[in-house]
């Protein structure tokens, strides 16, 4: 998926402030299609892993109730400018999304 994520990481004192915006429909599986009356199957990111220079800092499990095009913000103490931050996400259909940025 192209442009699956937008990321920004900035230093705030000795802490890196990371913001991630993912491009995903986050379908709950509870909504009905207005035309057919059928339930729209669930399709949502359920696993997100963030790493700094390859070291995992955050592991998240999500349900379908994270808002559409999910936003995630977190802070990492001890990170430095130039550190590489990677995010890997997997949805309930096994589709993968990933993003990468360097701390500014």
């Amino acid at each position: 998926m192209a442009d699956a994520m937008k990321m920004r990481a900035t230093m705030q004192g000795d802490t890196a402030d990371v913001k991630v915006l993912m491009n995903h429909i986050m379908e709950t599986g509870l909504r009905k299609d207005a035309k057919t009356g059928q339930l729209i199957p669930a399709h949502f990111i359920n696993s997100v892993v963030a790493a700094v220079n390859g070291k995992t800092v955050l592991e998240a499990q999500w349900g379908a109730a994270v808002a559409k095009n999910p936003f995630l913000g977190f802070r990492v103490k001890g990170a430095k400018a130039g550190d590489k931050i990677t995010i890997n996400a997997v949805d309930n259909k096994g589709e993968k999304l990933s993003g990468e940025t360097t701390v500014a």
Partner: peptide
Amino acid sequence: IADFEFSNGAEGFVSTRIK
């Protein structure tokens, strides 16, 4: 909604948007 686990210096902070 979600479960966030921290390690290796990540602080006890998280920001997101929920339904």
